[in-house]
Design a protein around this nucleic acid. Sequence first.
DNA 1: ATGCGTGATGATATAACATAACAACTATGA
DNA 2: TCATAGTTGTTATGTTATATCATCACGCAT
Lengths: 139, 139
Amino acid sequence: MNAAHHHHPDPKLSYNQGEILTCLRQAKEPMSAYAILDRVRTAGISHPPTVYRALNDLMQKGMVHRLQSRSAFVACDHGACDGKFAFAICRRCDKVVEIPLSDDDQAGLLGLAPDEISPEKVTLEIAGLCIACRPAETA
Amino acid sequence: MNAAHHHHPDPKLSYNQGEILTCLRQAKEPMSAYAILDRVRTAGISHPPTVYRALNDLMQKGMVHRLQSRSAFVACDHGACDGKFAFAICRRCDKVVEIPLSDDDQAGLLGLAPDEISPEKVTLEIAGLCIACRPAETA
DNA sequence: ATGCGTGATGATATAACATAACAACTATGA
DNA sequence: TCATAGTTGTTATGTTATATCATCACGCAT
Ligand SMILES: [Zn+2]
Ligand SMILES: [Zn+2]
Ligand SMILES: [Zn+2]
Ligand SMILES: [Zn+2]
């Protein structure tokens, strides 16, 4: 199989990267690596390392983000971004909203780090209840 | 085995909880659940569910925190705390510093959440390089 | 053309992390 | 006694992630 035979979301991506990014974009919700694997089997991708390789490459490019609190992956809402984002996640339905962080936001967060650790990267995830799940919570 | 036969870090803790909290406090660094399991075998704890149960109980009490970005657990630096903390973590040596968050800090973080998700809990982990690892990085 | 280096992918196996489900034991009090 | 709640033990399994080596396609120098 060859890249030229398929539509790619970005010409710089390899075949596997393109398939997996497309899968995540269509899902519009976080997917585990193994859920992705199930969905791309028809595209000829059939082993976990293949999926993790592509996910790591896509994360390096900023096109995919990992939700640490869920061990799941989402396509970047903005095509790509570079460390300057956070997530809000509904604890009930797993809906995810990507939050762009301003430079000030970033600086403020990095400023929380103590002197003995010079900060480089911030992981911020805010869990809560989305508007659709709020009624269901009054049980 | 019975709690009365052992010194406990807190009388309200069960035997298993006490052993595992003591283990984490002695380590002073993050430990995976399975690393804890190895260390408490001599105390009669020998199965993963036992460790995870105690860890979950201790986390509920705020006496143990989980580092999402490492799948590891640390004893709270302050005995116990209640959601109002962050971590700075050295990406090279895994040194961890717990950062207490002021009410203002918390409010600021929760304020980043979009309208459609009402925020409840914030997970903030800042990765960087600790002072001891800075020389080693110039490779 | 031949051979080489590089990057991407394929494939096997295993490691590391976490939980479901059920059984057993203790303590407490009706 | 009996029921109840709390804790722990045990087996089995599910889920997430990586190490390692093999293979393939391509560009390029000889
Ligand atoms: Zn993004
Ligand atoms: Zn929701
Ligand atoms: Zn704490
Ligand atoms: Zn360090």
